[in-house]
Amino acid sequence: MTEQLQQQARKLLDDQEVNLIIGYGEGSARAVRAVFVRSPEETEKLILDERCTANLAVYLNKKEIRALGKPAIVARPSVQRSIVQLAVENQLANGDITVIGIDDDGTLTLFSDLDKLGEHVLAQAPLRGDSPIASSGSRSASSEASSSGEASSSPESSASTESPHSPESPHSPEMDEERVRKLSSLPMEERFAFWMSEFAECLKCYACRAACPLCYCERCTVDCNQPQWVSVPAHPLGNLEWHVMRAMHLAGRCTECGACYDACPVDIPLHLLTQKMHDNMEEAFGTSSGEKKDKPVFPLNSFRPDDKEDFFR
């Protein structure tokens, strides 16, 4: 798999079809990291294995990466979905990038036409039940040696002992779905207590925002301070406002890659919020993000004079 990828990458650079390859390379302590390959010789750095789960699509809108020229990007299914969503939202156009698609079965397909990629994504498995590869998060629990993962008995975490805070760091679509199901079944008060105790740990480092390919706004609402819409300090209200806002802004757009959770230094399972929002959106509007359609529907972004709801008319 790796060899085929390296060959393909080398060819793209040799033919000068692209200026760089955004892919995975060996990182520190058994982790993998993003690498930016700019010469055919460097393609040896590229790797492809079960650890390659980080969503590289986040780099496509980074100013510093864009300055390097046209990229080709190694795209596992979750990355493909993000790219399609970015295209739907007019953040990527045909010709901007080349996609080196790597499907769950290891099949490598090149896409320069993003509509074709959209069709490819639609033909694949639905949003969840992603890949065997995606079952292990890039974040290793190395710092905690062989931790027992036992839930503590402190009052703050009592909610999490019975609710779905998983002890293992790597998350799988199945695990996430189970956790959303469990959370949804709790009474509202308990659900709220669970989230407030999780948000209490939030440092407002915005790693969730930085790791999300779809959080591409040049000025995030929290960074707007004339006036200050959202409370910035990492206190309970500020944290609640941030996480509610983040989830709402991603409702119906999130492609459920889990990058926000993987990025969170304090392990808040905030991806479950967007996942739940996605379920709600699908239920209410029959839409699914990361899928290219003839006419994309953004229920929360669109306005129609004949909308059946009249409260915002």
């Binding site: 990291r33 993003a34 690498v35 930016f36 986040v58 780099y59 510093e64 990466i65 440092l203 407002k204 480092c205 915005y206 790693a207 925002r209 930085a210 790791a211 990025a263 230094p265």
Partner: peptide, 17 residues
């Protein structure tokens, strides 16, 4: 600096821990 920081996502995780 540019070489090292290309993959940096620009969040505050490092500083806040």
């Amino acid at each position: 600096w540019e070489e090292q920081s290309l993959r940096c996502l620009g969040c505050g995780a490092c500083a806040f821990v």
